[in-house]
Design a protein around this nucleic acid. Structure first.
Length: 517
RNA sequence: GCUCCCGUAGUCUAGUCCGGUCAAGGAUAUCGGGCCUUCGACCCGACAACGUGGGUUCAAAUCCCGCCGGGAGCACCA
C-alpha cells in the first residue's frame, strides 16, 4: 500500500487488523507443519478456493488445494469451493465439463469442499454493492473504448466521465444494467488515484458488459463484475476469515482493501504462495486444454498433462502430493522442482505395501538347454523386505521371456535369471526375431547381472502406458492376472505402476500406467 | 518504463520479524561403502549454500543503503 495517501493507508491498515496481524508465511517446520495462521480461532476459520473452470487442476494448483485444506483441518474450519466463473473473455472460456473435473480432482486430493458456490449464481447480489460504492463517490461509469482507457491510464489522464456526480453515475449505472449500452460501450470504474505510482492500480474496472453466452446462466446477465470486485464482496458475504491464494493476485489485495476502506468494512487478511512447477511438466493449462479438447490427449488424466488426476492415475498417492506441496510452505519465490522429489515422497508411502511382479517389455523367447527339471516351479516372496505380504507360485522354465533391451546389452555373457538360475546368453541374442537358445550354467548365486524374467507358460499380456503417452507392450508373470483396477504394483527393474481404473478385471491385456522408478 | 515481490548447496527448504546458541539444520539429487537375488528399499559416509558491494555493531544469513539477478502485475481475464 505504498502509494496510498496517508488517511487511506491508515484505513487499509485498520481493515487488516493492524500490522501485527500480517500473517505467518514462513514455510514448513520439521514435522511438515506450516506456521500458525495469524488470528485463527479454532472452529471458526473459513477458507476458500477459487479456481477458474478452464482446465483440470494441475500440480501448480496443488498449493491452493493442500495449503487451504491443511489450515481447514488444523483449525477445524470450513473450506469453500467457489468457482470463479464470471463471464471470462473470448480467450478465457468456461467449459461446463470442467466443473465436475475440478470437483473430482479435489476428491482425489482428499480436499472435498464443505460447500460449493458458483459466482455465476451470485451476480444480482453484486449490483446493490456496486450502488453502495457509487453512492460513496467511489466509482464512475466510463465510456471510453478499452484502448483509450488503457492509454489514459498510462498517461495518468482522466476521462471526461471521471468528473461525473454521484447522481449522474447512478443514472449511467442504471443505463448499463438496463441495456442501453452494448458490450464494450461502458464500464464501471473505481476512482483511485490517477497518479498512483503503480499503473496497475489506476482506476481499475469494476464491472463491464458482456454479451457472451455463459455455459451455466446463458445470457441472463449483461453486466458482470470483475474478479477484484466480486471478491471484495464475497470475502465479506461468505464470511471468509483468511484468503490464501497465489501471488499473481497480490495487486488484487490492494483493490479489495481499497473497496473495504471505502465502505468502512474490515476484510480478512491475505496470504500468498509463489508459482510451483514440476521441471518435467513444461506444458501449461491452456496448452493441455487444447490437447485434451482435440483428442490428442487421453482426457485430463493423460500423463502428459501432469494434472492431479494424471498423477493419481499413475499411482502417486494424495498423501505424497500433500507432503510434497506442503514442504514448500508459503514461500513467495517461484520454484521449479524435479518430479523425482515427488516420486521419493511417494515411494516412502507405497513401497512397503506394494507387491513385486515381473514384467518384460518387448519380450524375446529364450529356451534354456539342460534346464534342471526341479526348477519348473518356484515360490517367491511378494516383497523382499516384508514377508507378511505373502508369496506366490511362479511357473518357471525351461522357456522364458526376457526383455529385448537386456538381451542386446548382455549378449555373449552369463546372466542370472533373478531368484532362479544362471544362463549363458549367446552372442547376438536379441538382435533377431526368433527365439534364442541358451545353455543353463549353474544355480550358484553369483554377482552377475540379474534380469527379471517371465515363464513362457502362463505369461499374461500387458499394455504399459508411458509418460509420453506411448503404449509399451510386454508380458508379465501369471500372478499379475489377479490384478484389480487401481492396484499398485512394482515391476521389478522397471518401476511402480498402477492398473487402470477403467480396466475390467480379467480382460487382456492388463492395462497399467507407469508411475515412477 | 512504472509498481510490487523474491534471492541460503544441483534442486527445494529451515533459520531472517526479536543480531550472538548458525564455523548454517533437513529433504532430494549426486558420489563412495554396506546389505537384500530389482535399476526399488534399508543402513553408513561424503560432497555442496547465506547473489554482490558498502554501512551499523564487540558480533550480521539476520538490521540499513546501493547494485546485480529472477518473477509477477500494468486486461472491459482469472
Amino acid at each position: 500500500m505504498g502509494g496510498l495517501p496517508p488517511e487511506q493507508k491508515a484505513a487499509a491498515l485498520e481493515s487488516l487488523g493492524g500490522p501485527e496481524e500480517a500473517a505467518a508465511r514462513s514455510p514448513a517446520r520439521a514435522g511438515g507443519e506450516l506456521p500458525p495462521l495469524a488470528g485463527a480461532i479454532d472452529g471458526q476459520v473459513v477458507l476458500r478456493m477459487a479456481p477458474f473452470p478452464s482446465g483440470g487442476l494441475h500440480i501448480g494448483s496443488a498449493r491452493m488445494i493442500f495449503v487451504n485444506d491443511y489450515y481447514r483441518k488444523r483449525y477445524h474450519g470450513k473450506l469453500l469451493l467457489v468457482f470463479d466463473d464470471t463471464i471470462g473473455s473470448e480467450e478465457k472460456r468456461i467449459d461446463l465439463a470442467l466443473f465436475d473435473v475440478i470437483l473430482h480432482d479435489l476428491e482425489i486430493a482428499g480436499a472435498t469442499p464443505d460447500a460449493v458456490y458458483y459466482k455465476s449464481d451470485r451476480i444480482p447480489m453484486f449490483y446493490p454493492w456496486a450502488r453502495r460504492v457509487i453512492e460513496k463517490g467511489g466509482a464512475y461509469v466510463c465510456r471510453c473504448p478499452a484502448e483509450l482507457l488503457r492509454e489514459n491510464r498510462v498517461k495518468e489522464l482522466a476521462c471526461p466521465e471521471r468528473a461525473q456526480s454521484i447522481g449522474e453515475t447512478l443514472d449511467e449505472w442504471e443505463k448499463m444494467l438496463g441495456g442501453t449500452y452494448a458490450q464494450g460501450e461502458a464500464v464501471l470504474r473505481l476512482r483511485t488515484d490517477l497518479h498512483d505510482p503503480d499503473p496497475a492500480f489506476r482506476d481499475r474496472v469494476l464491472f463491464r458488459i458482456s454479451e457472451l453466452d455463459h455455459p451455466r446462466v446463458g445470457r441472463r446477465y449483461r453486466v458482470w463484475p470483475l474478479l477484484e470486485f466480486s471478491w471484495a464482496v464475497d470475502d465479506i458475504e461468505l464470511g471468509i476469515t483468511h484468503v490464501i491464494r497465489g501471488k499473481d493476485l497480490v495487486m488484487e489485495d490492494r483493490m479489495q482493501e481499497h473497496l473495504w476502506a471505502l465502505l468502512g468494512l474490515k476484510g480478512p487478511p491475505f496470504l500468498h504462495w509463489g508459482l510451483l512447477r514440476l521441471r518435467e511438466a513444461k506444458i501449461s493449462k491452456s496448452k493441455s486444454y487444447l490437447e485434451v479438447k482435440s483428442g490428442q490427449y487421453d482426457g485430463w488424466a493423460d500423463p502428459r498433462t501432469w494434472s492431479i488426476a494424471s498423477l493419481d492415475r499413475r499411482g502417486i498417492s494424495a498423501e505424497a502430493m500433500r507432503k510434497f506441496t506442503l514442504s514448500f510452505g508459503l514461500s513467495l519465490a517461484d520454484i521449479e522442482v524435479p518430479a523425482e522429489t515427488l516420486y521419493s515422497e511417494n515411494r516412502a508411502i507405497v513401497d512397503a505395501t506394494t507387491l513385486r511382479r515381473a514384467f518384460v517389455e518387448d519380450p524375446v523367447r529364450v529356451d534354456v538347454r539342460e534346464y534342471p527339471a526341479e526348477l519348473g516351479r518356484i515360490s517367491l516372496a511378494n516383497h523382499p523386505d516384508h514377508p507378511e505380504l505373502g508369496r506366490r507360485e511362479v511357473v518357471a522354465g525351461p522357456s522364458f521371456y526376457l526383455p529385448r533391451a537386456d538381451l542386446l546389452r548382455f549378449a555373449g555373457t552369463e546372466i542370472r535369471l533373478k531368484d532362479l538360475a544362471n544362463i549363458e546368453l549367446p552372442i547376438g541374442a536379441g538382435s533377431e526375431a526368433g527365439p534364442v537358445s541358451a545353455p543353463f550354467t549353474s544355480r550358484e548365486n553369483r554377482k552377475i547381472p540379474r534380469l527379471q524374467w517371465v515363464g513362457a507358460e502362463g505369461a499374461v499380456p500387458v499394455d504399459l502406458l508411458g509418460l509420453e503417452g506411448e503404449h509399451r507392450q510386454g508380458l508379465a508373470e501369471q500372478a499379475l492376472a489377479e490384478a484389480r483396477p487401481r492396484d499398485i504394483y512394482q515391476f521389478e527393474r522397471v518401476g511402480f505402476v498402477r492398473v487402470e481404473g477403467d480396466w475390467r478385471a480379467g480382460a487382456s491385456p492388463i492395462r497399467v500406467v507407469f508411475g515412477h522408478p
